[in-house]
């Protein structure tokens, strides 16, 4: 499954590479950028490894701002505790400085399927015996993200944005039917093909 996702990401990336503009943008935000494709690390509670693949649609662009609709497929695993997949849709804004630094905020609502492992031990046997069971739960996941990044296309020919986001998610319901707040890390690149004007 992971391999398929990575392959799709690479396919999208390479397919659109041909449309990339070969000159740097300079000041302001390019008006020719309509969509972006993202691939990155999703760190549940920072260090539990995951992957996120996303697509961004630029709804409005001014000189330094972009209003962004984005949708992410996210996957993570927390060793011996849980594995989850999520579909997360966001609306956000990105401020582009003229020297490449970007600042962004996103507000999202996702749906997550979590596969919990209830790990336990039977201590009556010698040696003690692991007794684990699995429960899965579908949860809503409102979330907010704050991020910084660097737009390489300002100073180079690369149509790439590097981003680093902190994300706060509220998952409800969790395994005990309460909400679970987590601080997560998102780190990756966005490929923003610049379509040539006809």
């Amino acid at each position: 499954m992971k391999k398929i996702i990575v392959l799709i990401g690479i396919l999208i990336f390479t397919t659109h590479l041909g449309f990339a503009q070969t000159e740097s943008i300079g000041n302001g935000t390019s008006q020719n950028q309509k969509i972006g494709f993202s691939i990155g690390y999703y760190g549940y509670k920072i260090n539990n490894v995951g992957l996120q693949l996303g697509i961004e649609k630029y709804l409005a662009t001014t000189n330094n701002f972009q209003i962004i609709w984005s949708s992410y497929f996210q996957f993570y695993t927390q060793k011996e505790k849980q594995t989850a997949i999520a579909l997360n849709t966001r609306i956000g804004q990105r401020y582009n400085t003229n020297f490449g630094l970007i600042l962004e905020t996103h507000l999202g609502l996702g749906i997550q399927e979590t596969f919990y492992t209830i790990k336990g031990y039977d201590l009556t046997s010698n040696p003690i015996r692991e007794i684990s069971s699995k429960i899965n739960k579908t949860s809503a996941m409102p979330n907010i993200s704050l991020g910084i990044g660097y737009d390489f296309s300002k100073k180079t020919k690369l149509p790439l944005v590097y981003y680093l986001r902190t994300n706060i998610s509220w998952l409800y319901p969790d395994i005990n039917l309460v909400f679970n707040t987590t601080a997560n890390l998102e780190m990756g690149v966005i490929y923003k093909p610049i379509f040539k004007k006809k």
């Binding site: 505790k81 790990k119 336990g120 031990y121 201590l123 395994i175 005990n176 679970n180 707040t181």
Partner: peptide
Amino acid sequence: IDQISNLNYNGNVTKIEFLGEYTKADAIQ
């Protein structure tokens, strides 16, 4: 849970199960 389960309870504990983990932010809420 691995460390907890391997402590010596002198035969008085029969089973231990992990039930979940919550953050300080959860506790505040």
